Amino acid sequence: MTIRGKICGLTDAAAVTAAVRHGASFVGLVFYPPSPRNISPEAAAALVTEVPKEIEKVGLFVDPDDALLAEVLAVVPLDWIQLHGSESPERVARIKRKFGIPVLKAIKIAEKSDMVMAKAYENIADMLLFDAKAPKTMANALPGGNGLVFDWRMMQGLEFTIPWMLAGGLNAENVTAAVTISGARIVDTSSGVEIEPGRKDPVAIAAFLAALKAIEA
Rank of each mutant, 00 (worst) to 15 (best):
Arg199Met: 05
Glu173Ala: 14
Ala132Met: 02
Thr2Glu: 14
Val62Gln: 06
Gly23Gln: 03
Arg94His: 14
Met165Asn: 08
Val92Asn: 04
Asn123Pro: 05
Phe31Trp: 14
Val103Arg: 06
Ala217Gly: 15
Ser25Val: 02
Gly28Asp: 11
Pro64Gly: 07
Ile109Arg: 08
Val72Leu: 06
Ala167Arg: 11
Asn171Lys: 02
Ala93Ile: 06
Thr49Arg: 15
Asp66Gly: 02
Val16Trp: 04
Ser25Met: 03
Gly9Phe: 09
Lys200Trp: 00
Met1Val: 15
Leu83Arg: 03
Arg4Trp: 15
Phe61Ser: 04
Ala211Asp: 07
Leu60Ser: 13
Gly9Pro: 07
Gly183Asn: 10
Ala167Ile: 13
Ala18Trp: 10
Ile101Glu: 05
Gly9Tyr: 04
Glu173Ser: 14
Val92Leu: 02
Ala106Phe: 12
Trp164Ala: 03
Ile215Leu: 15
Lys136Ser: 00
Leu29Val: 02
Ala67His: 15
Asp12Gly: 04
Pro102Val: 12
Val75Gly: 00
Ala45Pro: 08
Glu159Cys: 08
Glu194Thr: 12
Val58Cys: 09
Lys98Ser: 11
Gly100Asn: 10
Lys57Ile: 15
Ala18Gln: 06
Leu158Thr: 03
Ile95Trp: 06
Pro77Gly: 07
Val76Trp: 00
Thr161Asp: 09
Ala132Glu: 04
Leu78Val: 13
Ile205Trp: 10
Ala106Pro: 12
Ala13Lys: 13
Val203Ser: 15
Lys133Val: 00
Ala118Gly: 11
Ala44Glu: 12
Ala210Arg: 14
Met1Gln: 13
Gly9Cys: 05
Asp65Thr: 05
Glu71Thr: 06
Phe61Cys: 06
Gln156Pro: 07
Ile162Val: 08
Pro33Asn: 06
Ala125Trp: 01
Pro52Thr: 03
Arg153Val: 13
Ala178Cys: 07
Val179Pro: 09
